[in-house]
Amino acid sequence: MTDPLAIFPLGLTFEAFTDIDFWTSVGIFAGIYTIFALGLQLNVGFTGIQNFGQAGFMAIGAYSMAILTAEEGMNFWLSLPISILITIAFGLIVGLPSLRLRADYFAIATIAFAEAIRLIALNARDLTNGAQGIFGFDDSWDSISESIEDFIIDLGWTDVPGLFPLFLVTWGIAVLMMFSLTRVQGTPWGRVLRAVREDEDAARALGKNAFSYKLQSLAIAASIGAVAGWLLAIQLAFVVPDEFQPIVTFIGYVVLVLGGLANYWGVAVGAIILWTVLEGLRFLELPISETKIAALRFIIVGLVLIGLMAFRPQGVFGKREEMVLGD
């Protein structure tokens, strides 16, 4: 799989540009990546830990929900909190030994963890059904989705896109998360996190258990990743290992720096910009093949990332004073 963002069949015609179904779907992906990158923002922007394993946590959240529901027959709604707990447990297992490492070692250790998870998901066929993936975990969601749809129809909008309920729920969760994370960031707890980001030793000398805060930050980010994992699973209606490649984390970082560091609302802006540009590019009438257009999209993403890091490392909406990259 060379284009993990290829969420739609290629070769959409220009008519799709005004198609509300298409843009609803794009909106859902922007929402999922917003949620995904909120976890990165908590880690990178507010705690100073460079988590490159977020795709792994997303995978654990999605897989544990899907396995519990589709294979163990657990109630869908019960599987959600349990999958969160499982992901937090993994966050702690990863964090306990590796959060003591230097920042660059931590980055490599977490990306290795995420890849190990993906390879295990690909090979542990009894549990994960390998590359075929898991289906049939979303019946409960479908009935909820239909009630939401009926409700909207009752309000007078008759041609509701089928994915619109998921769009609402995804962005509802995203906004709720941005709001609560911003609130929590303003508490003394959030202040300690920022102190740890600035200088761990200074925080420790003032009586703060820096390690515990980093662990909390990672565990929360992991659980946020799990939520993004559920939504991705529901959107696709299946869970396969290929959806959790390291590139997903990289794209999360692009969203993060586009929106700016140390700013939760910026993450949503970053995700919306990225997805609008990526999907809007489909409608350029270029005389080249679709593979080339797909490649072109990523070349642009890469150039944007290089340009941002070179000329605006605090991101589009980040504060220069709170810039955490340059130094």
């Binding site: 060379t2 460079q50 920042a103 660059d104 980055a107 072109l296 990523f298 070349i299």
Partner: peptide, 29 residues
């Protein structure tokens, strides 16, 4: 300019995208 570690790392990821998908652009998948 005294760029930091994460800054350079993310830049390298951007560069990786450009090279990889530049190759995909020319030679396909």
């Amino acid at each position: 300019r005294g760029a930091g570690m994460l800054q350079l790392l993310l830049m390298a990821i951007g560069l990786a995208f450009v090279i990889r998908y530049g190759i995909q652009f020319v030679w396909g998948t």
